[in-house]
Design a protein around this nucleic acid. Structure first.
Lengths: 193, 193
DNA sequence: TAATGTGAAAACCTTCACAGCT
DNA sequence: AGCTGTGAAGGTTTTCACATTA
């Protein structure tokens, strides 16, 4: 969130921001912001605030987004194709360098400069390309199996688009994107209306 | 998360589950599950566990997903069209009943049984259709404006697909779906590898 | 004067451990 | 025997408030 807003502020030409104004934008308290940042270092100047460019660079480093990350995608259906063609990843240093599908009729089909590979190739390609992130866009009932394949191949992070919570070892980081769950986590607060 | 897993369990034919087994599936402690549920009532039987169907029905009610929710979508570009045609919402009681775009050339274009309307119609249609949720799939720099329009029209929840955090009154619930942010929140833990 | 960084206090959340029910 | 529901304990997170610095 910090990175997202700081980028916007930088683009808008601002150079300095206080925890107070940043808090307004992020809808969190100024104290929270100062405490959050204090865990990683001292990035501000008393009396002035934070230099946006400097703080942004520091956060990029802390978050590990000052480097390129390679990802592969499993499940080249409608959703998978949309993700592969999504132009938002590469400007942020995320590159999808391989994709896989279980459907034999799709193998070797060209897409975005790659060709679709069979699941059997996951281990090879993950290792040889040093891929650390797997994107999973397969049907729910195939998700756990595919996640297990990816983890066995050496992937450390999973971006999961299926509406289930795959079970993984604690050193594997999973982020699930599920619009229905997002909706369902709103309605509780909307009931009153 | 509970609802998601309980549905799977129900589909698999199971009828009862303990906090222990549920914890394994969700990767949280049994005590956490019992405490979570205890805030809303007593749903289990000592010595047996939770009746899956009963707990699921209770949670659906608590979360407000035992009813239909109407939504509208603003921004009928590539992403917007994908969302409108996504078949996952309606089985869960979420129905997109109107859509809007700023682009005049798209007005009245038919899509999924609707026709694209101009932004000026937001207020009318949100009120007349009792729409409580707005889905926003417009470019980042138009998001805040569109969110303001939706809120002014009476929408109480926003599902935001733009990579920014719109500022809203505290009684408005926002959920942002941003794959890049999801990725960026993983890399911190992946740095070591 | 304006704003950070930070101990201390307050608030909140998770885990423990066990009485009590099936 | 097995498992829930729950006070109490233990941790963690957030907020407060102020010394300090530009």
């Amino acid at each position: 969130m910090y990175v997202r807003v700081l980028k916007q502020l930088k683009a808008s030409g601002k150079t300095v921001i206080s925890s107070n104004s940043l808090g307004k934008l992020l809808q969190i308290t100024p104290a929270q912001i100062r405490k959050d940042l204090s865990y990683f270092g001292k990035f501000g100047k008393q009396g002035r605030g934070y230099n946006i460019e400097y703080l942004l660079a520091a956060l990029n480093k802390i978050l590990g987004i000052d480097q390129e990350w390679k990802a592969c995608l499993v499940g080249v259906g409608r959703l998978g194709r949309a993700i592969i063609n999504y132009p938002g990843f590469s400007p942020h240093g995320f590159e999808i360098v391989a994709c896989f599908d279980i459907d034999k009729s799709r193998i070797n089909e060209p897409i975005a400069g790659m060709s679709i590979q069979p699941l059997g190739q996951i281990k090879n390609l993950v290792k040889s390309n040093n891929i650390k992130i797997g994107i999973v866009s397969v049907p729910a009932d195939q998700t756990q199996g595919v996640v297990d394949l990816l983890v066995a191949a050496g992937v450390k992070g999973i971006l999961n688009y299926a509406p289930i919570s795959p079970v993984v070892e604690t050193d594997i980081i999973v982020r699930t994107i599920d619009p229905v769950t997002s909706m369902q986590s709103m309605t509780y607060y909307l009931k009153g209306y």
